[in-house]
Design a protein around this nucleic acid. Structure first.
Lengths: 152, 152
DNA sequence: ACTATATAGTATTATATCAAATTAAATTGG
DNA sequence: CCAATTTAATTTGATATAATACTATATAGT
């Protein structure tokens, strides 16, 4: 008769918490993506948005690190953005192994369209939680995210 | 001069919230999956676990609905479980279009191995948040999940 | 200077996921 | 009772993702 490890209620809480997180992620990102124009995916839009907020010219490896994805994943996302003409990938003069990624005018326009199209969507979701609830949940999520990031 | 829609701080909260949720999901599910034996993925393990908790014999459509994925996605997950011999898919006598899914002994054993292997993992994550914080965050996530589910 | 190691980007393979189209079976309406 | 509609499962095609392996370049240590 083999025996399974005993599971505490705290572990069950964590399991349920991560389960809810998974469902929320799936529902919210698929809804968000449906609002995006130009066939942009969330991953593609996020890269364009990153450039607008923090400036372009990053290397693929820096982007992969910023988005917590592998370099292979970033290669693929950048290729799709480049095929659409939204970014330009040029050699990195400072390092022959590396490249630099720049947003094109088309990319800037697509990002702006994406903001315009998705803003009403986020405005609606706001009503899902009260201002107090939103203020309460954000630091908790940050704390969990940081813990997970530090323990992998 | 075109103008972007103005964005309220509440919308920024929601955007950041969903962003944290996305990162947490990515980090936690990839860490969880690494602990699973028999090449089980989170999606596959979740189906086996569902059967153990709630009994087997569901139709693929019922499972798709329970996990909030499309029927096509569930078809694919069930095929992989079936290829591994962890579930058996039989005709549904009550409905010729439909099928019923049953867990095999191998599936039960694989699920038990998965529990054994992942329990220490969840035991460690518990320390990421205090008991109070875990109690606080869960209802908020549930509320958000339910809202998103009702508004798609 | 040369070798060993590390890093950047890419290619490959496997899985999950959705959307849209397809097929078969059940249900409904006239 | 038959035609139209709905539902169940599957198939196909696209994208994201991780792992792994590979190539080219850079860096370090001797």
């Amino acid at each position: 008769m083999s025996k399974l490890p005993s599971t505490t209620s705290a572990q069950i809480d964590i399991f349920r918490l991560l389960n809810e997180v998974g469902i929320i992620h799936q529902l919210s990102s698929s809804a968000f993506e449906k609002t995006l124009p130009h066939g942009l995916t969330v991953a593609q839009f996020s890269v364009l948005n990153h450039f607008t907020r923090l400036g372009d010219g990053s290397t693929p490896a820096q982007l992969a690190s910023a988005f917590q994805v592998t370099r292979g994943t970033m290669t693929s996302t950048l290729k799709r953005l480049s095929d659409k003409g939204f970014v330009e990938i040029r050699p990195n003069d400072a390092d022959g192994r590396s490249k630099r990624v720049y947003m094109t005018d088309g990319g800037r326009a697509a990002r702006a369209d994406g903001i315009t199209a998705s803003t009403p969507h986020f405005a609606r979701i706001v009503e899902a939680l009260s201002a107090e609830e939103r203020k309460m949940i954000l630091p908790l999520l940050e704390k969990l995210r940081i813990w997970l990031d530090n323990h992998r």
